[in-house]
Design a protein around this nucleic acid. Sequence first.
DNA 1: GAAGAAGCGGACCGACCCGTCCGCTTCAGC
DNA 2: GCTGAAGCGGACGGGTCGGTCCGCTTCTTC
Lengths: 185, 185
Amino acid sequence: MASPVTTALRADAQRNLDRILVAAADAFAELGPDVTIDEIARRAGVGHGTVFRRFPTKEALRAAVLRRRLDELLERSRALLAEPDAGAAFVELVWAAAESCRRDRYLFEGVETCGELEVTEGKQELHEIVDKLIRRARRAGAVRAGLDARDVGALVGAAIQAAAHAERDEDWRRYVQVVLAGLRP
Amino acid sequence: MASPVTTALRADAQRNLDRILVAAADAFAELGPDVTIDEIARRAGVGHGTVFRRFPTKEALRAAVLRRRLDELLERSRALLAEPDAGAAFVELVWAAAESCRRDRYLFEGVETCGELEVTEGKQELHEIVDKLIRRARRAGAVRAGLDARDVGALVGAAIQAAAHAERDEDWRRYVQVVLAGLRP
DNA sequence: GAAGAAGCGGACCGACCCGTCCGCTTCAGC
DNA sequence: GCTGAAGCGGACGGGTCGGTCCGCTTCTTC
């Protein structure tokens, strides 16, 4: 996924790699970008030396996890370009982004601050597609002017972040609805 | 401020205390809650032992800084209760909160996660007054139903946080406007 | 200006954590 | 099964940082 031509891994190594990526995604989402590698290794059931053999630094591991999330969003966004109703497509996009941020509340912040090529390229690609979706929606009169992909991403990420300390667990939906209402012309 | 009956400090000690609080506020706002005490001490022009004499832990220092911000907001909110136009008072409240978060983008997150009595009490007080302002505004038809002080605080704080990585420096105003638009009925 | 209290700050300790390294284990091909 | 390569993981080094402590300095009071 990260590098298209990975030399085939031994079966046990591949198994460990998968478990590390899953454990890292969970741990980052739950404890934030400052989780220790030891914690991730513990969750994956491997020694922390094993983590460092696959990912030279903690940042590289974080980047791999972020990239996976970005790829999911990319796929979803591309599909939405085919949706005939531009306004509905935009609303769906927002909810998809919200779901992603919901799974990892540090996603937006992470993508913004991560300098790894893997992530900045993914972000760039995503922005281009999302900008298309926004322009379409604006022409259809469903979205106010003066907003781009970065703005929408930031606001949605923010709404989820806001709900992190909420009392009820579904508050994030209300917050996203507030933002959606604010995005209309 | 924190404790009403502080035993009088020696003149130089009081001077140092003031400089520490200013330096800490700046450093926390600029570098986040993880700044080192050494950095704060350096900015204040004191040794880091001096910081620990006034504040037993880093958390206590952070709490003192947060409390100061909360007190400013408290004062502002109380004044707004006297404003005859409930809708306008609410909008002003939101902008005041935004300005505070703008000065320290980690303010909201800090207040939510800080366990020190000093801060939780201040938050409680603020919530009560802001809830009054919101109820007034709702009765005046200026704010949608189903939102309380916590919600509004979260959304405003998040909007500012979102603007932290924005390209233009005034983007945070646009974001607050989006949220304000979303808060209307 | 003398004396004692208050304050200062840097050396120091211990905990934590990233990243390396190497002796041992496990897998894959024959 | 044998063999060599690939993989493993824990011990270790080095750096950082929060918090303590104590010999020295500075202020205040008389």
